[in-house]
């Protein structure tokens, strides 16, 4: 059990999401950076579907009521446990009464707090993710508030090192696979979507310019600001299913990238769709930061996915090995 002592306004319980119900209009939700949540769960020995807390507003302070292991992944929030700094992407053990404090990150947008045993809230339609729009999942379908007490499930058996351990963050370990553009813009790979060619020469301007993530961006979607683009003709669009990563262009000409809380249906012309393996990086992009879209193919996306899966598998296996070896020496 932990108690939320202080929290910003938009922090929620999330797991890997609630896919499979888009056909009845239910948004998948889930962590914006599923990679960070996945690694957090590995570090504390949780199953991959365990829920954690997505922290995107600060300050965030929790007090541990019981002894328990936790992990912090994603954005480096210069976390401290009773004032002692913790490295990023790290698992540690808390004693009863200890206070964990997260400060606003200097880069990246969202941190994930994984608790051994996972956040114990009732799954709704197969997931513990909070659906703010639907008002269900997580803690009563709402954002976390000071005073909330969060229960955890039964922690898995197995040794966790007393001094904690962590991982080489994916931004470092996979830096060759997820490069930055010159000037620090995030390079996001995307496949041209249904109405791409309708944009004519504006399609080239979509790919060539840097887009800025506007302040009107959240878990639902990122509104991008830049030089507007317009289709050469107005087409009648019939409402159709969409997935996170779809880049739609409303009449004003500034694209919107749908994210984890995306509506299940869309009707604006869509110029491109972000490859799934780049969505976690987009989930860490901050308001005001710059993006460049790069056209990709399925084959290129597959290479990125494979590298990502290999990193996760490597962390899972090596973490288990290290825990077993340390247990044998303890």
């Amino acid at each position: 059990m932990i108690e939320i002592v202080a929290t910003g306004p938009l922090n929620t319980v999330q797991d890997l999401g609630r896919p499979g119900y888009r056909n009845i209009g239910v948004t998948a939700c889930g962590a914006m950076d599923t990679l960070a949540l996945t690694i957090g769960n590995i570090l504390v020995g949780n199953a991959p579907d365990a829920a954690g807390i997505e922290v995107q507003t600060f300050p965030f302070r929790v007090r541990f009521s019981d002894r328990g292991a936790f992990a912090l992944t994603g954005a480096d929030c210069r976390a401290t446990l009773d004032g002692v700094p913790l490295p990023p992407w790290w698992m540690a053990q808390a004693r009863p009464g200890q206070m964990l404090e997260l400060s606003p990150p200097l880069k990246d947008a969202r941190a994930y707090l994984s608790l051994a045993g996972g956040v114990d809230v009732a799954p709704v339609m197969g997931s513990r993710s909070t659906s703010l729009r639907g008002g269900f999942g997580g803690v009563d379908g709402r954002v976390l508030a000071a005073g909330d007490r969060i229960a955890t499930g039964a922690a898995a058996d197995g040794f966790l090192p007393k001094d904690g351990f962590g991982v080489v963050p994916p931004a470092v370990a996979l830096k060759d696979v997820f490069p930055l553009a010159e000037g620090g813009a995030l390079v996001i790979r995307a496949l041209p979507a249904g109405e791409h060619d309708l944009f004519g020469v504006d399609a080239e301007r979509f790919w060539s310019q840097q887009w800025k993530i506007s302040a009107r961006s959240d878990r639902t979607g990122y509104r991008l600001s830049g030089d507007p683009i317009h289709p050469t003709e107005v087409v009648e669009m019939r409402s159709h299913g969409v997935v996170p990563g779809v880049i739609q262009v409303p009449p004003a000409g500034e694209p919107i990238v749908q994210m984890s809380d995306a509506n299940t249906a869309g009707g604006y012309p869509k110029i491109a769709g972000v490859i799934e393996a780049d969505l976690w990086r987009l989930g860490q992009a901050r308001i005001g930061s710059l993006l460049r879209f790069v056209p990709a193919t399925h084959a290129e996306a597959k290479v990125v996915e494979t590298a990502l899966a290999a990193y996760i598998a490597d962390v899972r296996k090596t973490a288990r090995l290290v825990r077993q070896a340390l247990a044998a020496m303890a």
Binding site: F165, G166, V168, D314, V315, T318, A319, V322
Partner: peptide
């Protein structure tokens, strides 16, 4: 400091 074992870091 840290000891790096593959992708894992030990303190």
């Amino acid at each position: 400091g840290f000891v790096e074992v593959g992708p894992v870091l030990l303190p």
